[in-house]
Amino acid sequence: MTKNIYKQIIAMGGGGFSMEPENPLLDRYILGLSKKEIPKICFVPTASGDSDKYIVRFYSAFVQQLCKPSHLSLFNPPTNDLRSFVLEQDIIYVGGGNTKNLIALWKEWGLDHILREAWESGIILCGLSAGSICWFEQAVTDSIPKQMTVLQCLGFLKGSNCPHYDGEQERRPSYHRLLSQGLISEGYAADDGVGLHFIQDKLEKIVSSRLHAKAYRLEKIGETVKETLLEPTYLGKI
């Protein structure tokens, strides 16, 4: 009898250990999704150019949690068998940075195909900023300096995504403009501290590490853009 495999992605607008080092609510939520008592969580810092400081911050945060942390560098690979390394993990956590470079490097190394296989086998995928938008078909990105543009991403999830919706003032008007001009597909935006939890390819839950942070559904109706507020479940105590 074939067991039911849950494909899960948690796309964070911002937050987690790198933006909220004193607030582990989102990171603990992600760890709690694993069925393992001590889940193996692998950080992928490609978008930051495998920043040493970013990697250290990851380990500093996750050694305090009940898990087994590791990281995957493409500039200094841990093995010549990336597929086996990735498929041994329980959670893949992708960091922020330049998404355009992330997509290019992943495709060059075949990591895009490996991560799809991981997702389809039940390994949890998550990340913030670049690590959020990479999973969608399209995204609003600042990968090119001084402008917000549309980026074609991996397409594990349908539609588009925009992170840092409340944290960077150009995000909301840029998403509205690109959608109204038909340059990007309909999708979701998330404030810093908000996680969009997809099971299979459906948005099943929205969680937040910040009391007043929100998520949004953006649709094009005629020539106008409709923005619908999506209220998250706050993970802390009120």
Rank of each mutant, 00 (worst) to 15 (best):
T79K: 06
N80D: 15
N80I: 13
D81N: 15
D81V: 13
D81T: 10
L82E: 05
L82S: 08
L82K: 04
R83T: 10
R83Y: 14
R83P: 11
S84L: 12
S84F: 10
S84W: 09
F85G: 06
V86K: 01
V86G: 03
V86A: 06
V86W: 06
L87P: 03
Q89I: 10
D90S: 12
D90A: 08
D90V: 09
D90E: 14
D90Q: 09
I91E: 01
I92M: 02
Y93F: 13
Y93M: 08
Y93P: 06
V94P: 07
V94Q: 02
V94G: 04
G95Q: 13
G95T: 14
G95M: 15
G96A: 11
G96W: 04
G97F: 08
G97Y: 05
N98L: 08
N98F: 07
N98A: 11
T99K: 00
T99N: 02
T99A: 11
N101S: 15
N101R: 14
L102C: 10
L102E: 13
I103T: 05
I103V: 15
A104H: 12
A104L: 13
A104M: 13
W106Y: 14
W106S: 05
W106P: 01
K107S: 08
K107F: 04
K107W: 10
K107R: 12
K107Y: 02
E108C: 13
E108N: 14
E108M: 13
W109Q: 12
G110M: 02
G110Y: 07
G110P: 05
L111I: 12
L111Y: 05
L111P: 00
L111R: 00
D112I: 04
D112F: 11
H113M: 13
H113G: 15
I114G: 06
I114N: 05
R116N: 13
E117W: 11
E117Q: 10
E117S: 12
E117A: 08
A118D: 01
A118P: 07
A118I: 03
W119T: 03
W119R: 08
S121L: 04
S121E: 08
G122M: 09
I123W: 02
I124P: 00
I124Q: 00
I124R: 01
C126K: 00
G127Y: 03
G127F: 03
G127V: 14
S129G: 14
S129V: 09
S129N: 10
G131Q: 06
S132Y: 01
S132G: 12
I133W: 02
I133C: 07
C134S: 12
C134W: 04
W135F: 14
W135H: 00
W135K: 04
